[in-house]
C-alpha cells in the first residue's frame, strides 16, 4: 500500500524527488513502489451497455418518485396575480398611520442622554484616571460617561501613597468629568484642561479616540 511508504518515497512517486535524492536505505523501497505504479493498468474502463441501462433505470425511477414530484411542485416558482380593491379612505388612513410611526421614530429622543447613548455603537477605550488625594477616605470619578453618578466608578488607593486610580472603558467621544472626594467634594483633574460647568465650578475634559486617549 502506498500509505505504508516512507514520506520521501511518496515524494518520489509524486515526482518531487528522484531516486538519486533518496538515502541508500530507502532506494530499494522506492524502486519497488515505482515498479508497482508503472505496472498499473491505465487503460480506460469500458462498461457494458447493460450496466449503463441498469444505472439509468435507477436514476429515472428516483427522479420520478411521487415524493420528488411533490417537492418539485411545491418548490417551483409560479406567477401569482393579486388584485386589491380598497376604498380611498383606507389608503389615506394607512398613509397617515405610517407617517405617524415614522414621525415618532424620527423625533423621539434616545432613552438615556449623554455620550454613552450617542456613541454606543462605537468602540470603547480603556482610560486610566489618577488623583493624588492624601487623607481621602474614598474617591470616585463621575462624568458624562456615567450620568454623573458619584458611586459608579470608585478609585482604588495605591497603598498609602495618597494616589488613587481606576481604569474605565469609555466610549469614543469627548467627556466631561470630575473627581468626588469623600462623597461630597468635587475636584477637577489637575492634569487635564477644564471648562466652566455652568454652576460656577469646573469640569475636566477628556477625549477618547479609537486610537487612544487625549487629554482634551
Amino acid at each position: 500500500m502506498i500509505a505504508g511508504y516512507h514520506p520521501l518515497v511518496k515524494q518520489v512517486l509524486d515526482g518531487e524527488l528522484s531516486l538519486a535524492d533518496l538515502p541508500p536505505e530507502l532506494r530499494a523501497e522506492a524502486e519497488e513502489a515505482v515498479r508497482l505504479v508503472q505496472a498499473a493498468d491505465r487503460a480506460p474502463v469500458i462498461l457494458s451497455s447493460a450496466v449503463e441501462d441498469r444505472v439509468m433505470a435507477v436514476v429515472r425511477g428516483h427522479a420520478a418518485s411521487p415524493a420528488r414530484r411533490a417537492w418539485r411542485w411545491i418548490n417551483a416558482p409560479r406567477d401569482i396575480e393579486l388584485r386589491l380593491r380598497v376604498r380611498p379612505w383606507v389608503l389615506w388612513g394607512g398613509a397617515l398611520a405610517a407617517a405617524a410611526v415614522l414621525a415618532l421614530l424620527l423625533t423621539r429622543p434616545t432613552s438615556s442622554p449623554g455620550p454613552e447613548t450617542r456613541v454606543a455603537s462605537r468602540d470603547s477605550v480603556l482610560v486610566r484616571f489618577v488623583l493624588y488625594a492624601p487623607g481621602a477616605r474614598r474617591v470616585a470619578v463621575a462624568g458624562t460617561f456615567n450620568q454623573w453618578d458619584r458611586s459608579a466608578a470608585p478609585l482604588v488607593p495605591a497603598g498609602t501613597s495618597g494616589v488613587w486610580t481606576t481604569t474605565l472603558a469609555l466610549p469614543v467621544g469627548q467627556h466631561q468629568y470630575a473627581f468626588v472626594v469623600d462623597g461630597e467634594r468635587w475636584v477637577v483633574d489637575p492634569g487635564a484642561p477644564a471648562v466652566n460647568d455652568g454652576f460656577g465650578r469646573r469640569n475636566s475634559l477628556v477625549a477618547v479616540t479609537a486610537h487612544g486617549t487625549r487629554a482634551l
Binding site: 442622554p113 454623573w148 455652568g198 454652576f199 460656577g200
Partner: peptide
C-alpha cells in the same frame, strides 16, 4: 434635548441649588 437632561442630572448630582440648575 440630551445635553439639557445631562446638565440637569449633573447639577442634581453636585447638589447645586434648584434655581442655579434651571438657570444653567
Amino acid at each position: 434635548v440630551a445635553p439639557l437632561v445631562e446638565k440637569a442630572i449633573e447639577g442634581g448630582a453636585k447638589g447645586v441649588p434648584a434655581d442655579r440648575v434651571i438657570a444653567a
